[in-house]
Nucleic acid binder design. Sequence first.
DNA 1: GTCTATATGAAGATAGAC
DNA 2: GTCTATCTTCATATAGAC
Lengths: 195, 195
Amino acid sequence: MARTAGSHSDITGPRIRAAALQLFAQRGFAAVSMRQIAGEVGVQAGALYNYTPDKQSLLFDLMQRHMEGLLAEVASRVMGDTPTDRLQSFVRFHIGYHIDRPDEVFIAYMELRSLSPENFARIETQRRRYEDVLEAILQDGVVQGAFSVPDTKIATLGLIAMLNGVNTWYRAGGRLSQTEVEGIYWDMARQAVGA
Amino acid sequence: MARTAGSHSDITGPRIRAAALQLFAQRGFAAVSMRQIAGEVGVQAGALYNYTPDKQSLLFDLMQRHMEGLLAEVASRVMGDTPTDRLQSFVRFHIGYHIDRPDEVFIAYMELRSLSPENFARIETQRRRYEDVLEAILQDGVVQGAFSVPDTKIATLGLIAMLNGVNTWYRAGGRLSQTEVEGIYWDMARQAVGA
DNA sequence: GTCTATATGAAGATAGAC
DNA sequence: GTCTATCTTCATATAGAC
């Protein structure tokens, strides 16, 4: 169907977010213009303002949705009777979730500085809640003598940084399956905490 | 001394790079204007063009200098008779070098997408040379049976990502000394490769 | 080498017609 | 809800005086 003037509120909103997501990830928030986003969607720039009050809110909306999805999923997917089992499920969940959403992840970690101070504070709160999930597992493991970790806070940040690194090289259809990648990172993570 | 019109070629160049470095790291390349850099240095925007042909070259110059310094230093600082010793010296070097240069490191990893294709290719080549230093150590260790690493390429990228994470939280004057931080990351790295 | 002034283009955002 | 047209500001980069 050719694009014509008219009402498309149901589909234009998601299309704007999808276009913004891809463009922000590829070129960076500051380097992308509202006109470019509109062009990708197939509308004029002015039409975007029916969906977002401004460019900053569009970025915040993307990051907020990502963090909420991440927090909801980690809560339902991380489980196990022992700290080691829970750590494994966290590592595998994190790798899988991040592999599936490279653009969201990239933006959430790279465009923090493009947020207004208020929006930054909100996203940071959500991020800390996610880190706390992992740190609680590590603390449990240390208390129970299952892990050897000198500093759970630093280990948390170090592990997450290591896991995030998967998105710098993983591409779907490469030589390794997602499960294989999960297994490799789980091996490294398990050894890193002395489990 | 008040700023006045005149010749200052010896000091203005470094001051421009220092200002650009800080501003690019803080706000991102695309979000920083030549006027802002000039303002930080204390000259007018036009004067910058006596030192760089354009903004892109200024970014490339910063990244190029960083990578060359990194490669020169890693070559002279990483040593040891065994793979484990060499890995330890690499980890401690990497942490120390990165802690000392947060802005350079941040830009080198975050503004790759802001480079022109030709400049990107040059920086990528240097980056790969740095990764190769670590991968050679891991391969040595695997061959000699000192390390347990399922995939040296992924382990290289995973370790570097983990080590780079230090810059997301380390601040000079915090609760841990640089040597303590090096020790913590060395513990994690050593365990991660099964050394 | 730095200044002022400016050429030229593009940015975010809004107004009002349809 | 989208369009066209526009306001206003700011961007990179250059020219020529000092």
